Amino acid sequence: MHADDLERRAAGVGLLADPVRRDLYRYVVDQPAPVSREQASVGVGVAHHVAKFHLDRLVEAGLLETEFRRPPGRSGPGAGRPTKLYRRAAAEVAVSLPLRRYDLAGSLMAEAIDSAAATGTPVLTALHDVAAARGAELAAMVANAVVPDGAPDGSTGTALAGSVDAAVEGRSDADPDVDPEEPDSVVTAACAALTDLGYEPLLADGEITLRSCPFHALVAEHTSLVCGLNLALLEGFVDVGAPGQLSARLDPAEGRCCVVLSVRS
């Protein structure tokens, strides 16, 4: 998770520490339909201008959304301006330290179950296949040479070192300082992407130790399942993002991810 992304998420959650703001948020999300400032101020028992200030702060933080609508039965000339209404935002805001990605684990498992049901493939095999494919997709952000659309054959583009979140969302946050011909640049870019994924990589003595597991809470009761998921995901990641330069292997130890990456000469 990038520092600015962590700051944005933490700020959004931190706004709810204020009791008035928290009460307004709860009031809005508990209603069956979007509410006006007047409804919120009455519902929580605060002045209209207080409700307006806090509701708009919640909108700025991405916790609420607004829409404009005229009251039922009022339309046409003379009906007045539409009323500003508040509702819960569709986007999710969560902060986890260390960063955990249970959403990713759930997505991979659901996709694997769908695939197994459709093809008859054993679920565990399907999970490893799905995880490897997802790792390869994420590695597009750290590919050591990208050929731009329409570029002549044999030409190379800029190595990508953007965040995993950017890859998932379809953005292309390229780092112009990454040299696709430099192995060190590829390893550095891979570490940056693995950081965004929650692995907290540490490069030392030719190995990348992953100091955190993004699926930590699942490990205690499903060790073999989670370790296999991690290995498949990271093998797919390094095979595409750093072919011939990084390799993944199982090497379980207390207090870190069960997978270790080796940097090849």
Rank of each mutant, 00 (worst) to 15 (best):
D149M: 09
L197F: 13
V142A: 13
V164A: 15
G135Q: 04
A159K: 12
T188D: 11
L202M: 10
A143G: 12
R171P: 00
P214G: 04
D184M: 07
T158V: 15
S155V: 14
A159N: 05
R134E: 13
D177G: 05
A192V: 01
L210R: 11
P152V: 12
V142P: 05
D196P: 00
G198S: 11
D205F: 07
C213Y: 06
E169N: 11
A131V: 04
G206V: 11
A161G: 15
P180W: 05
V146N: 11
S172W: 04
D205K: 12
C191K: 06
R171E: 03
P201N: 08
A136Q: 12
A189N: 04
E182Q: 10
S172E: 04
L138V: 15
L127W: 03
G135E: 03
R211G: 07
T156P: 00
L210N: 09
V164E: 11
E207H: 14
D165W: 09
S163T: 15
A192E: 03
D196M: 04
T209F: 06
G150F: 09
T158E: 06
L127Y: 02
C213R: 11
A204S: 14
E181L: 07
V178H: 04
C191N: 02
V147W: 03
L160W: 06
P152A: 15
V187H: 08
L202C: 05
D205H: 14
M141F: 01
G154Y: 11
T188H: 04
E200L: 11
E200V: 14
A143S: 13
A151C: 11
E169W: 05
P152R: 14
C213M: 09
L203T: 06
A174T: 11
R211Y: 01
V142T: 15
E200F: 06
A139E: 06
A139P: 09
P176Y: 01
D129L: 12
L160G: 15
L202D: 11
S172T: 03
T195L: 14
M141N: 10
E182F: 00
A159L: 15
L210Q: 10
A161P: 00
A140C: 07
A139S: 12
V168I: 13
L194P: 03
M141P: 00
V186Y: 01
C213T: 08
S185L: 00
A190K: 05
H128G: 06
A166M: 08
A192C: 01
S163C: 07
A167P: 01
Y199S: 07
P176D: 04
